[in-house]
Computed example of a mutant assay.
Amino acid sequence: MRTIGLIGGMSFESSAVYYRLVNEMVRERLGGLASAEVLMHSVNFEEIVSMQKAGDWDGAARRLGDVALKLQVGGADCVLICTNTMHLIAEQVAARISVPLIHIIDETAASLKAAGRRRPLLLATRYTMEHGFYADRMKSLGVEIAVPEAEDRTIVHDIIFSELCAGKVLDSSREKLMRIIEREMAKGADSIILGCTEICLILDPNNLPLPGFDTTTIHAKAAIEFSLGADRKREAA
């Protein structure tokens, strides 16, 4: 079993989900009391959010790059950035280490293509929905994403940062998200990407009007496949 390195704390609410998922998956695969070999470095999210708001992505890349290198030195055989938004700087972080960085967008695109989905609706932070890095990488992998209208993007972003990252899960916000999904269904969306690692706290991907793809679960599964040495090659679509 190879050691998984997790860059967590963005927010710790979703990092706790990652930790639970990778251990549950190892126990399911190996049985008994088996659990994952994991190293986690949890950062101060307030520091990262300040960089996001200031547009200091270079500073954020240095910070997470330092953390990734510490994980590698500590024995991690791969690294995961446990958040979609900070994959905006994934290439800079990957350049700091010599072990694989398992990329959440690549893994999500592979899952979408395997399911025959080509027009998913992305629900995520404003940074992920608007900065282009997510859409561009998905497009390069053969997937055209859709995002909500500007007003709805604000609603999703605020639910994530003001509520989910603070441990608040409100039925009223779940209803808002479902209305957004219904509006985008009418425009041709064929699936839903839970593109923020906290959204699984409020939306069940298996209880949506379209097929749901939870990036947190997809990312954790990829880490376990790497750790346990499974064949992670994907068939070409």
Rank of each mutant, 00 (worst) to 15 (best):
M185F: 05
E144Y: 05
R232K: 14
L30V: 02
M129C: 06
G195I: 00
N23Y: 03
S98E: 15
L112V: 02
R29D: 14
E46L: 05
F45K: 02
I105P: 10
H131Y: 11
A34T: 10
I199C: 08
D58R: 12
A237S: 14
D190A: 05
F12Y: 13
I104P: 15
K139F: 11
L164Q: 01
H131A: 11
C196H: 04
G5R: 02
E198H: 07
D106P: 13
A189G: 04
G65W: 07
Y19A: 02
R183E: 12
A230M: 15
T83R: 07
V79S: 04
I180K: 00
C165H: 09
G74H: 09
L71Y: 10
F161M: 13
N84M: 04
I199T: 06
R119F: 08
K187F: 05
G75L: 03
A237N: 14
K187C: 06
R174W: 01
N84C: 06
L208D: 01
L177D: 09
E107F: 04
M86F: 09
K221I: 07
G229T: 12
A124Q: 10
G116I: 12
T217R: 15
D190Q: 01
A34I: 09
Y18W: 07
D136S: 13
L71D: 11
A124V: 07
V67S: 14
P211K: 04
I181P: 03
M40D: 08
R137K: 11
L194F: 01
K221G: 08
S35N: 03
C196S: 11
L121F: 02
M178G: 07
L210P: 04
Y134T: 00
V147N: 03
G5I: 07
R117W: 00
A60Y: 11
L39G: 04
L80Q: 09
V49N: 13
H103T: 09
S172N: 07
G8R: 02
L69N: 08
T197Y: 01
Y18E: 02
S11N: 01
R234V: 15
I102K: 11
D56M: 07
K70P: 05
V73F: 10
L141R: 08
A90T: 12
L88Y: 14
S42L: 01
R96I: 06
I192M: 07
W57L: 08
P211C: 09
V43D: 09
L33C: 04
T108P: 13
L88C: 13
E107H: 03
A230C: 13
D56Y: 07
E13T: 12
V38C: 04
S140E: 15
A94R: 10
E144L: 05
T154Y: 12
E130W: 00
D66C: 13
E46Y: 03
G142K: 03
G132I: 00
R179T: 14
D136N: 10
H219Q: 02
L101P: 10
G212N: 08
V26D: 01
T125V: 01
T125P: 10
S98K: 15
A110C: 04
L112Q: 06
L170S: 00
A115F: 01
G188Y: 01
I104Y: 14
A124W: 06
H87L: 05
A54N: 06
S11V: 00
